[in-house]
Design a protein around this nucleic acid. Structure first.
Lengths: 209, 209
DNA sequence: GTCTATACGGTGATAGAC
DNA sequence: GTCTATCACCGTATAGAC
C-alpha cells in the first residue's frame, strides 16, 4: 500500500479541498456529491479540485483512506493493549469511539457507504496493515470467562454489539432527535449521557452476578 | 397521506419493476442506481419503467414507502402490545427484526440512505400514521423499574441499543464476514446464533440481580 | 496555482411505431 | 403495454489564458 499523507500534513488549498470533500461526500455519497459543490464548500474553483486530485474517484479514495487511517489506529491500539482490564477497556472504547465520531461527523456516513459499496476488503486490509491484532481483546475475554468474572459470550457478538451501539445512533440521528424533542432533550446531551450509560449497559450484560 | 399498494397487491410488470428497484436502489442508492440497470434487472425495457412510475424520484419514493410500510407496522404492533411481558417482548423483537431483514435484505441499505438523505421526517410521519404509540413500551419499562425487575434505565437508550444491534450487523456484513472466515463460520450461522444470543445480552443488561 | 470556457459522455425522460 | 430511437441536460474532465 502506498504512503498517504494525513490531513494534518496537508496544507493550504489541498487541505481545504480534503475537508470540503469529507463533508460533502459524507453527506451525499460518492454518486450524490458534485465536484462543483465540493469546490464551493472549499471556496475555490472546480478546476482546481481536478488539478489536485485528478478525478472524483481519486478524491474519494483519498478521503476514504484518510478517514479510516485517522480512526482505526486509535481505536485498535486501545483494544489490543493487554495491560488495560476488560471492563476499563470497554469504558474507554465507548468514550473514545463516540468522541472520535463527534469530532469527525462524516465517519458514520462513510462507514455505511463504503461498506455498501463493497469496500470491506479495503477496510480489512487497513486493519492488517495497522499491524494490530484483535486477538488480544479476544484472548482477554476468554480469560475473564475462565476466571469467572463474566459469563460465557462469543467475543465476535460482543464486539459487534459494542460497535453497533456506538455507530448506529449517529446514522439514526435525525430519527432519534425526532423522538427526543418530545422530552425536550438535545442530541448532544443524549450523546454525553450515552457515553456514561453505554459502558454500564455492556458491562452489565456480561458480568457474572 | 395517499394510499399505497403494497407489493403483494402489485402484479406482473409493475411488481417486477418494484422488486428490481428495491434490489438496485438498496445496493447503490438513489444517485448510484441507473434506470437502465433497474430495467435490466426486471428483464424489461427502460421506457417501461417510466411508463409505470413516471420518474426515478417517484419510483424511489414508491420503493421507500413500500419498504417501510412492510416493516414498521409489524414491529410496532408487537412493541405496543401491552399484554406481552417486557422480557418476552425483547425476545420476539430481536427475532422478528432480524428475520424481517433476512427476508428483505434491501432494508438496511434504505434505512441508512434515507436517514442520511434527511428523510427522517417521512419516517416519523409513517410512524404517526401507523396509529401506534411507543408509549406503551416506555410505560412498560418504567413499570418494571418500579416493580424492581429491572434496573433504572433510560428507555430511549434501551430501544436505540436494541435497534442498533439488530440493524448494524447487516450494514457491516462484509466486514463481519471477513472476521468470521477466520473461524470458518458462515454469516447465516452467525445470524441464527445472534437471534438466540442477543435477547440474552439485552435482558441481562437490564435485569436486576 | 488559479481561473474561464468548452468538449465530451452518460443518463433521465419523451415521442411514436407496433 | 411494450418496444426503438432520440432529445435535452447535466456533470466530469480538460485546454488554455493569466
Amino acid at each position: 500500500m502506498e504512503n498517504h499523507k494525513n490531513s494534518t500534513q496537508l496544507q493550504g488549498t489541498e487541505k481545504l479541498i480534503m475537508e470540503a470533500a469529507k463533508k460533502i461526500f459524507g453527506r451525499k455519497g460518492l454518486d450524490g456529491a458534485r465536484m462543483q459543490e465540493i469546490a464551493d464548500e472549499a471556496g475555490i474553483n472546480k478546476a482546481l479540485v481536478h488539478y489536485y486530485f485528478r478525478s472524483k474517484d481519486k478524491l474519494f479514495e483519498a478521503v476514504i483512506n484518510e478517514t479510516f487511517l485517522s480512526f482505526f489506529p486509535k481505536v485498535m491500539s486501545l483494544m489490543s493493549n493487554p495491560s488495560i482490564s476488560l471492563f476499563h477497556k470497554i469504558e474507554r472504547f465507548v468514550d473514545l469511539y463516540i468522541t472520535l465520531i463527534q469530532e469527525n461527523p462524516h465517519i458514520p456516513g462513510f462507514m455505511a457507504q463504503e461498506l455498501s459499496r463493497g469496500g470491506a476488503d479495503r477496510v480489512l486490509d487497513m486493519f492488517k496493515d495497522s499491524g494490530i491484532k484483535p486477538e488480544v481483546f479476544f484472548k482477554q475475554i476468554e480469560q475473564e470467562i475462565k476466571t469467572g468474572t463474566i459469563i460465557p459470550v462469543n467475543p465476535v457478538h460482543l464486539i459487534v454489539n459494542m460497535i453497533s451501539m456506538c455507530i448506529f445512533p449517529f446514522l439514526a440521528r435525525p430519527l432519534i432527535s425526532g423522538f427526543l424533542i418530545r422530552d425536550r432533550i438535545d442530541y448532544d446531551e443524549f450523546l454525553e449521557e450515552r457515553k456514561k450509560e453505554l459502558p454500564k449497559f455492556i458491562i452489565n450484560s456480561i458480568k457474572k452476578k
